[in-house]
Amino acid sequence: MSQTSSGIVVKQAGPLALVQDAGRFGVRHLGVTQGGAADWISFRWANWLLGNPLDSAALEIVMGGGLTLEVERATRLALAGADLGATLDDQPLAPGTSFTVRSGQRLVFRQPLAGLRAYLAFPGGLDAPEVLGSRACTARERLGGLHDDGQPLIVGDRLTWPGKAAAERQLPEGLGPRMPEPGCRLALVPGAQIAHFSGASLYRAFNMAWRVDNRADRMGVRLTGPVLRCSLPGMVSEGIPLGAVQVPADGQPIVLLNDRQTIGGYPRLGALTPGACASLAQCLPGSEVRLAPLTPSQAQEAHLRQLRAWKS
């Protein structure tokens, strides 16, 4: 290998580490899913810490599980999102920081201590081929990622990046990503087929606790709790927005996330806001969450406020 192709090598692959950027847009009418960082807020902070364009490709590391990366050339990296007990040569690395790594050092991600997904950003963003406008890795579609085959990192993969860090920032006081607290409230914009759910079901949906099921991935997260009843006998498949809360016949909702199918035919209560989707993506199975209704205008105000955090 030439000097220019040295970077960071995967020595041990954890359960799931994916190249992600903001996602694929303008292609959903082709049946291509959105993809992109599930906790887009932490992902953006990781890029912000290095002065990268905020949607630069980074690593989404789920659980940790022993993912081991060996450094071949010195660089600056940034970590944000979940605390996966990461270490650099056995020294703990706090999420929400940028740090220098030297040749020969090892980064290890162990297990979730707070949150589920950590984001590791590289100067100028990870090198990966762009397909349909994005580097986002979607396994089901075999699109994107390091080799444009939609596969997660495997042993021997070499991560490279184009540049030097443009900045070495620190998280502004009180801003930064926060991992969800137990019982956290997830904002939901009511809509779609909500009128077809019984009053009792709606009362339960917004007043009782939901538990994050272990059937959870980048396509969708099941919630378990009270049974919700919808009177709609059948439905013609229609486009599915991010965060859609669909309720199949068993009455237990599924929140559809970044890698969801583009169209589907289950009745829906509405959709979580993008901010709530980011929070849910950090909830471990077994976590308790609550659903809180919000109007589209209120949700947009909160969303625009979040986007302004990176303008400073």
Binding site: V189, G191, G239, P241, G243, A244, G270, A271, T273, H303
Partner: peptide, 9 residues
């Protein structure tokens, strides 16, 4: 129909 924060059906 409203269907999400930034999506209409």
């Amino acid at each position: 129909d409203t269907t999400a924060m930034d999506a209409l059906m």
